[in-house]
């Protein structure tokens, strides 16, 4: 276990190092300067600007400097947002993104698991078909299409909920629903198959034979075992929520990390692009690691070293 963890952490660091280097050199290769959008600068002013941000030095020096600063947790300064530190810019926006992601994850997985269980208990009934339909549609419809239509019909036409911004709980409802659709669909699908699998196993027959009530069988015996694989699928789903939130935040004008990322792309704000990329990747790798460890913790039948996977 210890050796496995060490190995995994090593690969994590390697991946992050690679991503940081890749983004750094990509930003150097991309044509155009970040100052092009500002008022026309004379060549002399351009030199001063470049010197100010250290862009006049040779690329290897800049690279070493950037990586060194990164180790200290310094992501550099933004070119566009009035010279603010990229780290500050990002962490200040982490809150809304985290809240949105958390709410969507809870709503989606709870509702999805519930739907899946009901579908499995009432196989081939209209509830089953309904939940399968929701699962297929939820998995297929692009989140930004769903979010756009939700915003138009619920927000604009019916006027039930605020359309834009992030000022209170009612502002979080629509983006949460839009983002929760995908985890809901995945959870419902998986839960249904797992639950059916478990319901057909011997120990459930035994429970029935000894006269346990329907409720006891479904929730005490079956659900517990059926949940294990579902929990492990939800990890990668959580990762996909991070990228999903990019567009959701743009649509609902939420001051989150995703919105920052999209804006920095349109503004050519290289330090911010690099910073958000690295932060996203770090969260991504971390979640994958946590999920892999969870496999072993939740289900003792799966051992981390060797064997399955």
């Amino acid at each position: 276990m210890g050796k496995y963890l060490l190995q995994r952490v090593f690969y994590m660091v390697l991946t992050l190092f690679l991503i940081a280097s890749l983004t750094f050199f990509l930003m150097k290769v991309i044509p155009g300067t970040p100052f092009a959008s500002q008022n026309k600068l004379s060549p002399a002013q351009m030199e001063i600007m470049k010197a100010k941000y250290g862009l006049d030095q040779p690329v290897p020096v800049q690279y070493a400097k950037y990586m060194g600063n990164l180790l200290k947790g310094d992501f550099g300064t933004s070119f566009q947002f009035s010279n603010r530190a990229v780290g500050d810019l990002m962490f200040q926006r982490l809150g809304p993104s985290a809240q949105l992601g958390f709410q969507a994850m809870v709503l989606g997985s709870v509702l999805g698991i519930f739907l899946g269980v009901i579908a499995a208990l009432r196989q081939n009934s209209w509830i089953d078909y309904g939940s399968t339909f929701i699962a297929v549609v939820g998995k297929s419809i692009p989140s930004f299409v769903f979010a756009g239509l939700l915003q138009y019909y619920i927000g604009v036409k019916l006027g039930w909920l605020p359309v834009l911004f992030w000022k209170g709980f009612e502002y979080t409802i629509m983006p949460t629903i839009a983002l929760a659709l995908f985890p809901l669909a995945i959870a419902a699908r998986f839960m249904r198959t797992e639950m059916i699998d478990v319901l057909n196993s011997d120990y459930i027959t035994l429970a029935k034979a000894k006269g346990a009530s329907f409720f006891d069988i479904a929730f005490k015996h079956a659900l517990r075992n059926a949940l294990i694989p579902v929990v492990t699928v939800l990890g990668p789903v959580f990762v996909s929520l991070m990228t999903g939130s990019l567009v959701i935040e743009k649509i609902f004008a939420i001051p989150g990390l995703g919105e920052q990322f999209v804006t920095s792309i349109t503004l050519n704000d290289y330090p911010v692009i690099m910073g958000t990329t690295i932060l996203y990747s770090a969260m991504f790798v971390l979640i994958i690691l946590i999920v892999d460890i969870l496999y072993g913790v939740i289900d003792p039948r799966i051992r981390l070293s060797g064997g399955k996977k």
């Binding site: 991946t15 890749l22 990747s281 994958i288």
Partner: peptide, 13 residues
């Protein structure tokens, strides 16, 4: 290493 890179982020880059 490659699987650790978020897909859409690398596509955007």
């Amino acid at each position: 290493v490659l699987i650790g890179i978020p897909f859409l982020v690398v596509v955007i880059l």
